[in-house]
């Protein structure tokens, strides 16, 4: 097991190096001169002389060869210095400290809800196959995996925010500041973000449950006269969870992707929206830092998922 873990970690380190190379070079291919954009955004009504642009170029280290810039970038990050945003005039690390907690709050809740409700709906629809809970929930899972997230968001806003007035329409409040408001504001974005995961997990859970239920040892458990609950929980569910764990692992990636859309709709100052505005504003220092942090997060989650597989299923260690 230890060799397996060490091998996995070594692989992850190699992947990490490739990730940094990709983040740095792909983003540096962004068209346009970042300094011209800076000038256009901040001093639109004014003429800025070329000498000043050159000065800024030196200030941001953009005059050096690209490999030197890459090495500097890596070296700086080890010191916790992610560079300074050209647009915000703020340390990127400070921006990320502001934004990541928001996205992790919403994303984390969505991940948990996606897993819990996904599994629950999967079990219910499998156990009550063909009965009314199945007939209602299964079509809903079809909606979940097919509806474009941003449209779902707009519809929810109009139905629950405007028409019924049950929920605040948009915004984000820290739970430490006002827990009630924070929770009420979170309901729609979290539903919006986890709807897909709930549906995908439920579909997965349903089909693996159906398979397990029909297997011999579960039938044996039934025949032993165990109650339904204990059969489902103890036997069937445990064995159908493994594929769902995979999905939850993958879910981290989906949530970071979804945060881009959900944060834009619900006016949430998270990292997804910051990323989008930085991409379109070509503030690539920010884009690099955020994509890197997200990629590393996903890398770590995948590493953990892999290791837990190795632990669950010894065959994998030798795979």
């Amino acid at each position: 097991m230890t060799t397996y873990i060490i091998r996995r970690i070594l692989q992850a380190v190699v992947v990490l190096i490739i990730v940094t190379l990709m983040v740095f070079f792909v983003i540096r291919l962004l068209p346009g001169d970042p300094l011209i954009i800076y000038v256009a955004q901040t001093a639109q009504l004014q003429a800025m002389p070329p000498e000043m642009i050159e000065e800024l170029r030196i200030q941001y280290g953009l005059d050096k060869p690209i490999m030197v810039q890459y090495v500097n970038w890596i070296a700086n990050m080890f010191r916790g210095d992610f560079g300074e945003s050209v647009y915000y005039h703020e340390d990127v690390s400070a921006l990320m400290i502001e934004r990541f907690p928001v996205t992790l709050h919403i994303g984390g809740l969505s991940l948990i809800i996606g897993a819990v409700f996904g599994i629950l709906v999967g079990i219910i629809t499998a156990v009550r196959r063909g009965k009314w809970p199945d007939k209602i929930l299964t079509p809903l899972t079809y909606v979940g995996i097919t509806i474009p997230v941003f449209f779902l968001g707009i519809l929810m806003i109009y139905v629950f925010g405007v028409k019924f007035g049950w929920l605040p329409i948009s915004g984000y409040t820290s739970p430490f500041e006002n827990f009630g408001l924070s929770t009420r504001q979170l309901i729609m974005p979290v539903i919006c973000m986890s709807f897909f995961s709930i549906a995908a997990n439920a579909r997965q859970m349903r089909s693996s449950m159906l398979e397990v239920i029909s297997q011999d040892y579960v039938r044996t458990a039934w025949s032993k006269g165990l109650t339904e609950r204990s059969v489902i929980l103890k036997h069937a569910m445990k064995n159908s969870l493994i594929p769902v764990i995979t999905l939850v692992g993958v879910g981290v990636g989906i949530l970071f992707g979804g945060s881009v859309l959900v944060e834009t709709i619900f006016a949430i100052p998270g990292v997804g929206r910051l990323l989008v505005s930085s991409i379109f504003g070509q503030d690539y220092v920010v884009v690099q830092a955020i994509t890197l942090v997200i990629a590393v997060a996903i890398l770590v989650v995948n590493l953990l998922v892999d290791i837990s597989y190795g632990w669950l299923d010894p065959r994998i260690r030798y795979g």
Partner: peptide, 26 residues
């Protein structure tokens, strides 16, 4: 094998929508 598969692993570390977004911006 390692070169290819670790590169693939690296690409999988980027959520599809983000990856496509950055690429489409490029």
């Amino acid at each position: 094998n390692n070169l290819i598969m670790r590169t693939m692993d690296a690409m999988m570390c980027f959520p599809m929508l983000l990856f496509a977004l950055v690429l489409a911006a490029v």
